[in-house]
Write a protein that binds this DNA or RNA. Structure first.
Length: 542
RNA sequence: GCGCCCGUAGCUCAGUCGGAUAGAGCAGCGGCCUUCUAAGCCGCGGGUCGCGGGUUCGAAUCCUGCCGGGCGCGCCA
């Protein structure tokens, strides 16, 4: 149907003399149903190019589009929009499709099996995950789910930075706590980790015989990091997020780092200055060149990053998406520059910053500090408001925006979380199905006469179900899962309204009853799919 | 100082890459449960889209200058 419309539009524009106008002008689903089911601003775009009257052009476009089968009405509106109202039957077909495809309804093949890697969270193995990590986890996982659902072959990866200064500090912190456990006086070093968890960690590692008092800092750090990573993995699993690979930075040494250094050198992207080796990132838009190997021969963190991305590329991913935390947005330029300098395909690397979370407690800002050890953990967030509510809450926002998270509000107003509104819709559908009995509920959608759906509310729901695949495709393409939370809320509103005003099972006729059941089940299925993409459960009872 | 992000209803946030009368949740006020789950529904009030210019048929959206908030700017990771 849409293909047909597109063809007609192209034809109309060509006849009107608008070369290439169809590139800018497509069909969108207008938010206001009064503006039809599909709309195009083609005439407005064309009017600009030709310096002509948009309403007049719109009339011509409309005339052409009226030839499309399935276009029940085509009108010119506003300054020159062409609004198309689709035949009801077309929308109702999507109800059958939703039931026929079930959990696959909305699935697309835009990715055509392309292998995509999504790297997210990637917290340092020096402590428990915090609220910012939780947001990144919810976002990265939902994005991965969206990409999978649109035909990509997705790998979720967590980069464990288990090399460098912070490992040393972790080791020293553990050693100090071990000394304290023996009753000795010990100092946590400057910049060390003072959180309670280090004490527990030291005690447990000691009791389990994994470390002994005399071991060196590096070994203490490694043992501690292993424990911390295991804990992070368990927390994430409880949050519904599972990674395909936990990639440890130390595994890049020495082979991958040497390879990266060689590749950079071969491409003439490095030079020596002050005894150090520099990458010419300014040649690719960065503000200054970056050191990759220090004068004493030790590679920098950035060097490891280069090796890591080259490693990703060599593993055959068609695209790598890095979801980075707010403290990394200073790295974006040099990472893009690095990708260009190493000759990685344009667009291969995509960086998304998952912004910070301002924690509030009853309106008061909570200062988080790893040193003080008073950070709000992901575990606390989960325990306070639950996994579904937390994930939905984080996914309601665009990743780029900072967001305020009031713990007290979250605790006291948990039932107000919009996630329950959407879940309740699904539960009500299940309730209706159950009440209708297996026989009626399983009545074949093919046999039902959906033309019996003659209420405006019913058409609106069918329209929403019909729109779902488009929403999925757009959310995936734009890397914006929050479009789905908005969609779910909207679909729930339509259903709740319908449910309240019309007794679904007390339909005036048998035909209407069957049609309503098909509609209701299709709404339930669509809601379930939307929630699943967000990583939120779809309960049958609430 | 430089860079990135953000200023939209009392609060938290959307706003489909420049479109139609700027939306939702929460909070406030007033209604609705002998009937498929009231975690719901209906109604009301609430906005100079931070401020000023500019671009054009048309700007919350693009450009520019301010104001305000956050973060980042090591041969740390």
């Amino acid at each position: 149907m849409e293909e047909k419309l597109r063809t007609l539009l192209r034809k109309a524009l060509a006849e009107l003399g608008g070369e290439g106008a169809e590139e800018e002008a497509g069909f969108t689903v207008p938010p206001n149903p009064e503006h039809g089911d599909l709309t195009t601003n083609a005439a407005l775009v064309l009017a600009k190019k030709l310096d002509a009257d948009p309403r007049k052009l719109a009339q011509n476009v409309a005339e052409e589009l009226r030839k499309a089968p399935g276009a029940a009405a085509v009108d010119v509106a506003g300054p020159g929009f062409v609004n198309i109202r689709l035949a009801d039957a077309l929308l109702f077909d999507s109800l059958r499709e939703a039931l026929a495809r079930g959990n696959d309804y909305g699935r697309g093949d835009e990715g055509r099996g392309a292998r995509v890697q999504v790297e997210f969270v990637s917290a340092n193995p020096t402590g428990p995950l915090n609220a910012v990590n939780a947001r990144a986890a919810a976002y990265g996982d939902a994005l991965a789910r969206l990409l999978e659902f649109t035909g990509h072959d997705v790998a979720r990866e967590f980069y464990v930075c288990n090399v460098g200064t912070q490992m040393d500090l972790l080791g020293q912190s553990v050693r100090a706590r071990l000394a304290e456990l023996r009753g000795e006086k010990a100092e946590i070093p400057d910049g060390g980790y003072r959180g309670e968890y280090v004490i527990d960690l030291a005690r447990r590692l000691h009791e389990e015989g994994k470390i002994s008092d005399g071991e060196d800092v590096a070994k203490l750090a490694a043992a501690a990091a292993a424990e911390i990573v295991a804990r992070q993995r368990a927390d994430l699993a409880d949050f519904g997020v599972n990674f395909d690979l936990w990639f440890c930075e130390d595994s890049l040494y020495p082979a991958d780092v040497e390879t990266a250094k060689r590749v950079a050198a071969e491409r003439g992207a490095v030079y020596e200055k002050d005894g150090a080796l520099w990458l010419k990132t300014t040649a690719a838009g960065d503000d200054e060149d970056r050191v990759i190997v220090r004068a004493d021969g030790r590679p920098t963190y950035f060097m490891a990053d280069i090796a890591y991305h080259l490693n990703k590329y060599e593993r055959g991913f068609a695209k790598a998406i890095d979801v980075l935390g707010p403290d990394h947005h200073g790295h974006v330029k040099k990472l893009y520059a690095m990708a260009e300098l190493l000759g990685l395909p344009a667009g291969w690397l995509e960086i998304i910053i998952s912004q910070q979370v301002n924690l509030l407690e009853g309106g008061e800002k909570v200062k988080m500090s790893k040193r003080a050890g008073n950070l709000v953990t992901m575990r606390e967030v989960m325990d306070n408001i639950g996994v579904d509510a937390a994930r939905f809450f984080f996914l309601m926002r665009t990743p780029a925006a900072h967001l305020d998270f009031d713990l007290e509000l979250a605790r006291t107003q948990t039932p107000e979380n919009p996630v329950y509104y959407a879940q309740y819709c699904h539960a009500r559908v299940e309730s209706v199905k159950q009440e209708a009995g297996a026989e009626t509920a399983e009545a074949s959608p093919e046999a039902a006469d959906l033309a019996a759906l003659n209420l405006a509310e019913e058409r609106l729901m069918a329209r929403a179900v019909w729109e779902f695949p488009k929403v999925v495709a757009s959310a995936a393409a734009r890397r914006e899962p929050h479009r789905l939370t908005a969609y779910a809320t909207n679909l729930a509103a339509l259903f709740h309204n319908y449910y309240q005003h019309h007794r679904i099972l007390q339909a005036p006729s048998e035909a209407e009853l069957r049609a309503r059941l098909v509609l209701t089940r299709a709404v339930g299925q669509t809601m379930k799919n939307a929630l699943r993409l967000l990583g939120v459960s779809a309960p049958s009872h609430m």
